[in-house]
């Protein structure tokens, strides 16, 4: 951890970073915003930890909990909504056994999150599984998509 943090700190000082860019680097390196990492930077930079968490909780991009091994992003844009993304999201929630009010399944295998718009409205509804984009998704294709992830 120390080594990774030093690296991030070095970049921060070299490029004149900000709290946002620092948090982005932390998340990149550790997968989520770890409390002990934030405390380390808080001491190092003499910035209250509350400052970091204030920013982290403001933006949708930062996660305070570890995320699943496979990440499925559902686009919740207007076009996807009109084209019926909601029932597929519900189906995925059921199939992946993600508890109500959570985004990650209990076994830590899947995270299903929604994003405002990925900007691929022509091929709505759009889902992204581990950075691969699936367009014009139907319930059956969603099954195939999950099967593909399961194999890994």
């Amino acid at each position: 951890m120390e080594k990774n943090c030093q690296k991030i700190l070095h970049r921060y000082n070299a490029e004149g970073g900000s709290v946002v860019s620092l948090l982005q680097d932390i998340q990149e390196a550790f997968g989520y915003i770890r409390e002990d990492v934030v405390d380390w930077f808080s001491d190092e930079l003499n910035v209250p930890a509350s400052n970091f968490f204030g920013v982290a909780t403001f933006y949708a991009q930062f996660y305070l909990k570890p995320r699943g091994k496979n990440i499925i992003t559902a686009c919740c844009g207007t076009a996807c909504h009109v084209k019926g993304s909601a029932p597929i999201i519900e189906k995925l929630r059921m199939d992946l056994k993600i508890p109500e009010g959570e985004v990650t399944s209990k076994n830590g295998k899947y995270t299903l999150e929604s994003v405002a718009c990925v900007g691929a409205c022509s091929i709505a509804p759009v889902f992204i599984a581990n950075k691969k984009v699936f367009g014009k998704l139907t319930a059956e294709m969603a099954d195939a998509m999950i099967k593909g992830l399961e194999k890994k």
């Binding site: 900000s18 709290v19 946002v20 860019s21």
Partner: peptide, 25 residues
């Protein structure tokens, strides 16, 4: 400067706060 996912940051004063690394309000 990469945004961190907040729609309100399309608003000019919020966007500038965000570039400064603060909460985008």
């Amino acid at each position: 400067k990469l945004g961190a996912g907040a729609f309100v940051c399309g608003e000019s004063t919020a966007l500038m706060r965000s570039i400064e690394g603060k909460r985008g309000m």
